[in-house]
Computed example of a mutant assay.
Amino acid sequence: MASEFKKMAFWRAVVAEFFAMSLFIFISIGCALGFQFPVSANKTTTPVQDNVKVSLAFGLSIATMAQSVGHISGAHLNPAVTLGLLLSCQISILRAVMYTIAQCLGAVVATAILSGITSSLPNNSLGLNALAEGVNSGQGLGIEIIATLQLVLCVLATTDRRRTDVSGSAPLAIGLSVALGHLLAIDYTGCGINPARSFGSAVVVGDFKNHWIFWVGPILGGVSAALVYDFILAPRSCDVTDRMKVWTSGQVEEYDLDADDSRVEMKPK
Score class of each variant (00 low, 15 high):
150 Q>S: 02
62 I>G: 01
98 M>H: 06
6 K>E: 10
76 H>L: 09
215 W>H: 09
215 W>S: 03
240 V>Y: 13
180 L>I: 04
49 Q>W: 02
1 M>K: 14
211 H>C: 07
220 L>Y: 06
183 L>G: 02
113 I>N: 03
185 A>Y: 10
209 K>Y: 15
234 A>W: 14
212 W>S: 04
267 K>P: 03
11 W>V: 00
212 W>N: 07
101 I>D: 10
187 D>H: 12
241 T>V: 07
183 L>E: 01
131 L>A: 02
127 G>I: 00
207 D>E: 05
21 M>H: 14
217 G>F: 00
61 S>W: 02
154 C>G: 12
215 W>P: 12
233 L>C: 09
204 V>A: 12
209 K>N: 14
96 A>P: 09
247 W>K: 03
240 V>L: 15
16 A>M: 07
54 V>Q: 07
250 G>Q: 09
67 Q>M: 11
31 C>V: 15
221 G>K: 05
263 R>G: 03
135 V>D: 12
208 F>C: 03
167 S>M: 08
71 H>R: 01
259 A>F: 06
158 T>Q: 08
232 I>N: 09
97 V>N: 06
91 I>K: 00
14 V>T: 08
64 T>P: 07
139 Q>S: 05
40 S>N: 11
244 M>I: 15
16 A>N: 07
29 I>K: 08
128 L>P: 04
105 L>D: 13
81 V>T: 02
134 G>H: 04
100 T>S: 15
77 L>G: 02
118 T>R: 10
37 F>K: 04
69 V>F: 00
235 P>T: 01
106 G>N: 11
211 H>M: 10
126 L>K: 11
208 F>T: 01
254 E>W: 11
267 K>D: 00
251 Q>G: 15
99 Y>W: 08
182 H>W: 07
122 P>C: 08
39 V>T: 03
113 I>T: 11
219 I>N: 01
123 N>L: 03
208 F>G: 05
195 P>C: 09
101 I>H: 13
232 I>F: 12
251 Q>N: 15
152 V>N: 07
249 S>E: 15
196 A>S: 12
120 S>P: 03
240 V>Q: 14
240 V>G: 13
109 V>T: 08
4 E>V: 07
3 S>Y: 04
183 L>H: 07
40 S>W: 06
164 T>F: 02
128 L>W: 04
31 C>Q: 10
223 V>A: 08
268 P>D: 14
162 R>G: 10
163 R>A: 01
248 T>L: 03
134 G>I: 06
156 L>C: 15
83 L>A: 08
178 V>M: 05
176 L>Q: 07
256 D>C: 12
239 D>T: 07
189 T>Q: 03
8 M>K: 01
192 G>D: 03
163 R>P: 06
237 S>Q: 11
118 T>G: 06
217 G>T: 02
118 T>W: 13
57 A>G: 11
120 S>G: 08
10 F>S: 05
121 L>Y: 15
161 R>T: 01
216 V>D: 00
6 K>D: 14
1 M>F: 13
264 V>E: 04
76 H>G: 05
126 L>N: 13
256 D>I: 14
24 F>S: 05
217 G>L: 00
227 L>V: 13
101 I>W: 14
238 C>V: 12
187 D>K: 05
253 E>P: 07
26 F>L: 15
39 V>F: 12
116 G>I: 02
86 L>P: 00
192 G>I: 00
148 T>E: 10
101 I>Q: 10
122 P>T: 05
